[in-house]
């Protein structure tokens, strides 16, 4: 029965040889049908085993089985290789150009006015100030009278204020909020508020003037709140807003509702105080007006100025934004040109 083994070897060699030619899964299946199915010649050899003498059957069977096992093993390997190859091809066909744009709604920009307003409010809210949102439409009482600008005061001129039909006017400064909170605080006790908002003045619009502009008003009232507290607070604000190395200086000024009144200058960030075109050679840039709340303003708000003192300040939002970002024209804040807005995003 030697020929049985030889035949099996021949069949195995033939099958192995054919397997080399197999390049796809369907033809691998055909190969399997040809060589490993029940109708395959190798199976026929198995049938012939019965003809062999019983004492040889064991070793012959093992020989045939070995050939079959070997072919099955080869089949498995080939199948894995072909599947892998097919997958690789499929994935290759699904390849994308990773440099094409992603799918997104994008993050919206923010008008630098709002950006700076938020930032100022955040700085003071972080220190513990409450935020008081005033209104654009005010009355003479809150915009002027309670702030020490009685009837006939030049600041109440028709020249500067938009008066509305009826009683109202468009507030000319956020200090109007100051008058409200003083009057409306029933305890007449300590207060710390910050009040951002829009203001209006009868200015023709040009690069540096706007009939509409923004301010943030600050007010701190307590026992013994002095100019020293104002100086410390605004120095901290200037560092947070314009950088750690900034210093401030106070310059005497005048506002009807504060006494003493000061303008606050911050050391120029561009030239470090040496003097340049940005600070007009002085090394300092004016950023806001401030002062000790006038005793009459406290009194009109129902406070006892013998007991309470306070400071107030008003920051121009556009002015700070223009300094911070080098914006050349105040009208840009109100045009919302998409190309301009695209430069600003919330940083935190």
């Amino acid at each position: 029965m030697e020929d049985l083994i030889q035949e099996a070897r021949r069949l195995r060699e033939e099958a192995e040889k054919e397997l080399h030619e197999v390049l796809s899964l369907p033809s691998l299946q055909e190969w399997r049908n040809r060589h490993l199915s029940k109708k395959a010649p190798l199976s026929a050899l198995m049938a012939r085993l019965r003809e062999a003498p019983p004492e040889e059957r064991g070793s012959l069977g093992a020989g045939l089985n070995e050939a079959r096992k070997a072919l099955e093993g080869l089949f498995g390997e080939k199948e894995r290789a072909l599947r892998e190859e097919a997958l690789t091809k499929k994935l290759e066909s699904e390849r994308v150009d990773v440099t094409l744009p992603g799918r997104r709604d994008g993050i919206g920009a923010i008008n630098p006015f709002r950006l700076i307003e938020d930032e100022i409010v955040q700085i003071f809210a972080g220190m513990g100030y409450r935020v008081e949102e005033g209104h654009d439409v005010e009355t003479e009482r809150y915009n002027f009278e309670l702030l020490n600008m009685p009837e006939g005061h030049p600041a109440r001129d028709m020249q500067d204020t938009f008066y509305l039909e009826g009683e109202g006017l468009l507030r000319t400064q956020t200090s109007a909020s100051q008058a409200h909170v003083l009057e409306e605080n029933e305890e007449k006790g300590p207060l710390a508020i910050i009040s951002p908002g829009k203001c209006y003045r009868r200015d023709d619009d040009d690069m540096t003037h706007s009939h509409q502009f923004g301010q943030v008003e600050g007010l701190l009232v307590g026992e013994g709140v002095s100019m020293a507290d104002l100086k410390g607070t605004l120095a901290l604000f200037a560092r947070k807003m314009f950088g750690e190395k900034r210093e401030i200086r106070l310059r005497s000024s005048y506002f009807p509702f504060t006494e003493p009144s000061v303008e606050v200058d911050v050391s120029c960030a561009r030239c470090e105080g040496k003097g340049c075109s940005m600070c007009k050679g002085t090394g300092w840039i004016e950023i806001l007006g401030a002062g000790e709340v006038h005793p009459d303003v406290l009194r009109k708000g129902g406070y006892d100025p013998e007991r309470y003192q306070g400071f107030a300040f008003g920051v121009g939002i556009e002015r700070v934004a223009m300094l911070r970002y080098g914006i050349d024209d105040i009208r840009r804040f109100y045009q919302d040109d998409a190309r301009f807005l695209a430069g600003f995003r919330e940083e935190d």
């Binding site: 809210a125 100030y129 100019m227 020293a228 507290d229 410390g232």
Partner: peptide, 17 residues
């Protein structure tokens, strides 16, 4: 005004937004 010292005031409680 350089004679005015710089200090931070104590604030009333309950601030923020």
């Amino acid at each position: 005004y350089e004679r005015v010292p710089s200090r931070l005031p104590a604030l009333p409680p309950e601030g923020g937004l």
